[in-house]
Design a protein around this nucleic acid. Structure first.
Lengths: 216, 216, 216, 216
DNA sequence: AATGAATGAGATTTCATTCAT
DNA sequence: CATGAATGAAATCTCATTCAT
């Protein structure tokens, strides 16, 4: 769950031509772009942090823009993995489905509050006007699958007679919106770290509202 | 209601030193910052669009950063004015309070989708990490008052026996979250213009969910 | 006749905003481009030699390419002035027209061997493939007028019964070609300075051949 | 006669270390240098076009500069071969020597207008100031032999009583100068392709002038 | 002999900011 | 008060060249 995973130890050590320079570049880029944004993160600084030379970056990625996109893509994939794991964990068959839904809400909020997600959001919102394709790329890779999976789960709960959901995708969006409803203020727009307890409470409040609206 | 009002003709003509230069600078800044973001909007370009020279900008605002903040402040004030007008319009005393709440939802969504609001959001999210004070400044001037006013209205509705709201501020946040739940996707993160009909439908769906959760 | 004229003393001294920076930039550019060619002459070096900062160059000329073109234009104008002066000096009315033609030949060769002309030629030949417009620009400003003027003179000499010239423009081209016939080798393609005596002799040999072909 | 002959199929196949890589490198270099000049032609691009890797180029030629020189040397040799063939074809013994001289003039002009010759000229003029040895190298390999051979032929014609030539080498230079007198303008400094007819006419005009000056 | 990967040095260009008028 | 002109600093990107394999 670390934002910038240290390069995993490779089994066989190459002394030269190490293709894991790509990894260290992407890690450095994720960190710098995440902290400073596309414009203020200089390729020089990324190279320095990655421990490679500038031309190495350019030979690998061709353009600062492309490096940015690949970096975002990785972050989105990582975020998506976390989110999907959370959703997959939702057991809709047991009688404790309410507790499970609360747990899911907490997980979703935790994911959204992760540094990875926050910086991803910052970067996308900041650059989406310059490159609108970013929006589609990300929603295809992260928000889309998340919503689909969540909608499916809610449909199951509905079929099981627990919820009364006519439009599962809408309900999914509302569930996410509700769990995050308090987080913008609590985190001061992603500026402040939110205490785990507060996050949990906010998540529960959101799920409660959702249940109030949809539980049979 | 135009986002960037053209400088109105001034009644008294000065030969020079017209204090409305400040206005045209702020207008130009709002437009450029809104389109390009803080980094990519160059002071040169703002000066050109404002029809003044660069040093004039610096003598008025001292720093690009300060100009940015003032520009954001203005946008926030303008947005707040619109939002408050919408909320003030909510009549909680009549029997048609449900329709009024639906209308309010629609207004809120419309405000949030306005170019002014969208670009404000973009700018803040993009720069808030560099200057966390932005967050407080904006929430004090725009989101805060909005939430207060909305919470007050909801409390009234609760007192009047229409809703069952224990925590009005939480409910206010949830109402806003619900009305916007579908907008992120519909507008492709603010990239696409959303048809007025779609926006209205999305707003109603949000208000409906809110009522399902809170209506007595 | 100096390639890089020192900035002429201006009558009124401005202490600041001296527009003669343009002059010193152009002078430095002419020298650097002349010595090193377009690619190897760096804007840094030109700025240093001109005693200005790099951005000053860019604010004056916008682009290295444009600076190059303006520099070439000036050199061409200067060369043209010299060449025209030489041709204007040809008196076709006197009985000593042969001597005058020899003198003209010498002047033309001297002009062509001037550092200004040599470096102009180098630069144009080197860059004309990248920017074919250079060719037309220069022939319109330098070679064209020269040929016209020379052709006119030869036509006069023909009318006066001294020469038998059917196509004056062709004859003009041939006269120039003949006077320069030996110079390519003598100057080792512009690498070596040619002794004034050798240049004069070569010029006379060319004019002699011209007279052998065209004198009545 | 193609300027850049495609590498001919090699008779003996080595698994690697094929010595015809040198050929393909030289061919690619000739083309790139000819089109872009020394500076703008990157070793990367040459390696790509040659279908080899950069280090291969360096192991063969050591330096971009040396590759350039070898490339020029080859072009000069090729040009010289063509020119000498043209001159060797001049039969000074027949009574049709005038026609033969006209034909020779046409051949010379054709050679000079060949892409090979034009790009050679461009490259030398562009780089001769940086490396003056280029001048001697080329005149030894191309212009020098050409002039010698041509001078010898003219001397023969003089001995045969057809011409009155005192200084055969001077006459040779003048003949070449005269045949090319119109080509600079016609070809717009090597920018434009000249129609074969125009080239022929220009060549004849030059030879005519030569004959007017030197024919007995 | 040949190569994929890496790099130090340097290219052009832009920007926020400040003088002197 | 407003400005044209100037600049230090830094941005992205390219290139000739060299290792280690």
């Amino acid at each position: 769950m670390s934002v910038v995973p240290t390069a995993v130890a490779e089994p066989e050590e190459h002394l030269y031509g190490r293709p894991d320079k790509r990894r260290s570049i992407l890690d450095a880029a994720a960190q710098m772009f995440g902290e400073l944004g596309f414009e203020r993160a200089s390729v020089d600084a990324i190279a320095l942090k990655a421990g490679v030379s500038k031309p190495t970056i350019y030979s690998h990625f061709g353009t600062k823009e492309r490096l940015f996109r690949e970096s975002l893509g990785e972050s989105a994939a990582r975020l998506n993995r976390d989110l999907m794991a959370a959703i997959d964990g939702l057991d809709v068959t047991t009688r404790t489905w309410r507790a499970a839904l609360h747990a899911l809400g907490e997980s979703l909020v935790a994911c959204h509050q992760s540094e990875c997600s926050q910086s991803l959001q910052r970067q996308i919102v900041a650059e989406v006007k310059r490159d609108p394709e970013l929006s589609t790329a990300i929603s295809e890779r992260a928000s889309g699958p998340l919503l689909d999976a969540l909608a499916t789960k809610l449909a199951r709960l509905s079929e099981a007679g627990h919820l009364r959901v006519k439009d599962p995708e809408l309900a999914a969006k509302q569930l996410i919106a509700l769990t995050n409803a308090e987080m913008v203020e609590l985190s001061a727009m992603g500026t402040r770290r939110v205490a785990a307890d507060d996050a949990r409470r906010a998540a529960r409040a959101g799920v409660d509202a959702f249940l109030a609206a949809y539980a049979r």
